[in-house]
Design a protein around this nucleic acid. Structure first.
Lengths: 332, 332
DNA sequence: CTGAAAGCGCTAACAG
DNA sequence: CTGTTAGCGCTTTCAG
């Protein structure tokens, strides 16, 4: 591997001149510029980014933390972040937490070790105090995660209101016994889950009951959805909900599939509300009514915000696209 | 940020002793060991991986190249690779090419610059000679990409045979006018596309025609699928195919959706074959007949292979799981 | 078992 | 405009 030294020798110049050239320093005479270019080409030289980073303490890699990349919501989010980061010359390091605090800690440590220069967290496991403490090593922005009592920069949508409105929509359709699924536990990492809060508020507002048998935690996959359906179906008929608010389209599809399998009708026997508006959901046997998230905007705004910190510029989040939207189809 | 120097000073030892401790060198007296541990804890010290890499020339990051992370096939593949890499203590750097040679080149350059120590390529744009030339900087393994005339290590399935068999299945159902969609161009990066080859071989074997109007290139998305359907429907009836082999479930769903929209029936008016067996495909209005790929095994084997090169061990690919499987449902 | 010293490849004052 | 001179934080001989 050729080094800057070799280039300097071949060009008959000093290392510093070559270094200046590399950093597009102004004021380098044209003939030397040419000699450097020739030397670099001949030697097939590439600067070592490791050495550069060690010296300059500036990196060009940003980290992204997601819980599961295989979840389409996250893969699209990563897509959006990566695209925007690349626009600014940054590359992206993706890590999955699988809801594991350790993985999150690992990524935070990479910030400390300067492997990454900044971090977008699309998933949070640890408490905000811990995360905040890592800010001294580089900017951190929360994406689609909202913690009220923190000063960590965050880009988020109002899931409380969206959940409230979607639940009200269910109620307006005449449903009174509404079940609820969530991906995490009900309270997340010490702070409340805003979807849950919106759901509860709608129930309260309309004086509707919330029953333990109708609450499901830690459900993520189609399979999980099917199991939820089984539990619902095992309930005595008069105690069975007539609508369900789910945490994801996967879960919603699983429930739908199982209900259809046993000869039930949707939404007659159960109205199902999804979350995410994933590509296929409009094409299921019963097209899913669901809540669309502004993935592209979430990725774009959080990336822009992070980069503004990295480059010490100002950036004002454009919230105009950060809105959730209820997509009404057939399932509810 | 505390450095190894600070730790040494605080422990009253030399830097080299601390370095030895960090690298679990044998022969360090127990009391010094303890003093080092205390000093590190007090200073909240973390070794700088950048400096370590610069000196030792060994890294712990592997790169993954995919064309589009938002494609569920790739996001699941990345998931599998990441999980397996983590098992061995490696972290993962993901980059999308968007079918752009430049992005691929970038990743290859990261190998040269030692940002990553090894690379799994799940997508290939450039020619094999170029890629081979980067092998001197670190191991590269091809995942789900097969180039016959290269000595690059590769982990792949036999898509030619699977496509052949799936096409024969279509023919066995009585279809004689079979259309074809592909994600890329028909020949890819100079070498043939094995799916196309399998499809063609089946047609030849059964003396069936291949018509230009029935061939679609560069189709990827649901939207693309809908456009394909429109073109099909614009054909005079007697010239319209009665079956279609698609490159992905997205495309298949798009075609399906449009056909259903205009009142056609599937598979009566058109038999549709998908590719990938994505989670939702069994639950569409007409459940998709499709080809399942062994994603988990592809990720696992390529990661194991790459790591074996990195750690200079031997590894024999376990091909037993690397098989494609036709999933017969309703659409064909 | 431990320390001193010499760099890894590059950047950044400081003098010309 | 260009060269000299110190290091960045860590590993690795080479002598004790």
């Amino acid at each position: 591997m050729a080094t800057i030294k070799d280039v300097a020798k071949k060009a008959g110049l000093s290392v510093s001149t070559v270094s200046r050239y590399l950093n597009n320093h102004p004021y380098i005479s044209d003939d030397k510029r040419k000699r450097i270019q020739e030397a670099m080409a001949e030697l097939n030289y590439t600067p070592s980014s490791v050495a550069t980073q060690l010296r300059s303490k500036k990196g060009t890699m940003i980290g992204i933390l997601v819980s599961r990349i295989a979840n389409p919501f996250f893969s699209h989010l990563v897509d959006s972040i990566e695209k925007n980061a690349r626009l600014h010359g940054y590359t992206v390091l993706v890590m999955q937490t699988y809801d594991d605090k350790k993985a999150e800690k690992n990524m935070l440590e990479m910030l400390k070790q300067r492997v990454i220069s900044g971090l977008v967290m699309c998933s949070i496991e640890g408490d905000s105090k811990t995360i905040e403490s890592y800010q001294e090593y580089g900017p951190i922005v929360l994406c689609n995660e909202h913690i009220p009592e923190t000063q960590l920069p965050q880009v988020y949508t109002d899931q409380e209101v969206a959940s409230f409105e979607a639940t009200e929509y269910l109620i307006a359709q005449g449903h009174k016994k509404i079940a609820y699924c969530t991906g995490g536990s009900l309270t997340r990492g010490g702070h409340g889950n805003s979807r849950t809060e919106g759901f509860e508020r709608a129930l309260h507002t309309h004086n509707l009951p919330m029953k333990i048998d109708w609450i499901f935690k830690q459900v993520h996959t189609i399979q999980d959805g099917m199991e939820v359906a089984d539990k619902l179906l095992a309930l005595p008929e008069e105690n069975r909900p007539d609508a369900i608010f789910t945490s994801s389209d996967e879960v919603a599809s699983g429930i739908l599939e199982r209900y259809l399998d046993v000869g039930k009708q949707v939404p007659r026997d159960l109205a199902i509300l999804g979350f995410d508006n994933q590509p296929f959901t409009g094409m299921l046997s019963v097209p899913l009514t669901t809540i669309a998230q502004p993935i592209e905007a979430l990725g774009r705004e959080s990336t822009n915000l992070l980069i503004s910190y990295l480059e010490e510029k100002d950036y004002q989040i454009d919230t105009s696209d950060l809105v959730l939207k209820l997509i009404i189809r057939k399932s509810a």
